[in-house]
Design a protein around this nucleic acid. Structure first.
Lengths: 196, 196
DNA sequence: TTTCAATCTTAACGATGTTAAGCTACAGCA
DNA sequence: TGCTGTAGCTTAACATCGTTAAGATTGAAA
């Protein structure tokens, strides 16, 4: 047996994410993660306080990818409005392509509200980053003479629409055929376009 | 020990729902539910195929209350549009007041996509009922000369907005103070009003 | 009264999260 | 070079969970 793995911490995050994506949150156990990383079943406790901490690290990782995906979609289109819409579609697509990860990121499957109040952990920060970028793009599309409060509310509405579409879809609540949509990206684009 | 409980099945659903609401999904185990109902830890298996089936019954129960809450909110206001908006606010409020139940109902914490394809279970049916009522109310507010497809898309958008607000809020993603809102109902009403 | 099916219990299995205690191997110092 | 401390990992155990198999209890039909 090799003692001293090298970088077990990130190996565990990687392993957990891989299990999550392949087999869902139910099967993503600490012990399975340890086995996947080729290490004893109690080893993770030397790098993470508990299972929650591991999953939080995975979620934070996911948020980084998520933020990148949204930003890159926004940049690929010219114009503030088009970019904003493209990032909305990317939001829904990300969720669709990584349903388990997305649920882990947003859901409180992880820390059932029991995170210490002051504990500004990685995930919350990463998620704040995601939304603040979204908000910035939304603001860029707002009419200049609108009061700030209304612009903020519009940004929130935009967020709610894409988040709602994403969660409803990955939970199997939306029947694409019923809307004559060929895929969820198509449907999301049509819903987003109808805004305002 | 009493054998023959009387109506253990519904007692179990009640017990599970009570544990869920008080302690969250994590603590809602089959065994704890059985204990709460004052019955042996394997007794539930004589009334439910497995844990999923129990939770599905709870979710179906929740959907019935949910549908009622939305309908009653819609009826309390006159006018199709006002009623539709009121039911949107009720949607978000229900989620806020029953976060664990709401997650169980919509999330796939329950049946991680592994429900048999043909299995049109109680939950799916109850959830369909909820949305079809919502859709009907949305249609009543649509301009008569709009094509049906567009009206359906608008209904979907309305659904996505309230569902997004609800899930984002119960997962702690929305800071009410940041929007100068006194409660989530207030905020939801403002977001919904800004539609169209 | 006997029998039988419905209903519940007891007991066990494997898996999980978590903790306590001990083992290994590298780094720095003699 | 050899010694030692400590970071990193392992083994072993506990309580809990979902689930199943086998047996006990009961009320009602025959």
């Amino acid at each position: 047996m090799d003692y001293h793995h090298g970088d077990l911490r990130s190996a565990l995050v990687k392993a957990a994410r891989s299990i999550l994506e392949e087999h869902g949150i139910e099967k993503t156990s600490l012990r399975a993660t340890a086995r996947e990383a080729g290490v004893s079943e109690a080893a993770p406790y030397h790098h993470f306080k508990d299972k929650n901490a591991l999953l939080s690290a995975v979620a934070a990782d996911g948020f980084r990818d998520f933020t990148k995906a949204l930003a890159s979609a926004a940049a690929s289109d010219e114009g503030a409005i088009e970019g904003h819409r493209a990032s909305g579609v990317a939001y829904v697509k990300f969720a669709t392509e990584n349903p388990h990860l997305f649920r882990l990121m947003f859901g409180s499957a992880r820390n059932e509200m029991k995170a210490p109040p002051g504990c500004d952990d990685d995930v919350k920060q990463a998620s704040r980053d995601s939304f603040s970028a979204l908000q910035t793009r939304a603001a860029a599309t707002a009419n200049k003479d609108k009061p700030d409060a209304e612009a903020a509310l519009m940004a929130l509405k935009d967020w709610a629409v894409v988040h709602g579409l994403a969660t409803l879809f990955i939970d199997g609540r939306i029947d694409l055929a019923g809307y004559g949509a060929k895929d969820i990206g198509d449907l999301a684009a049509r819903v987003i376009q109808m805004q305002r």
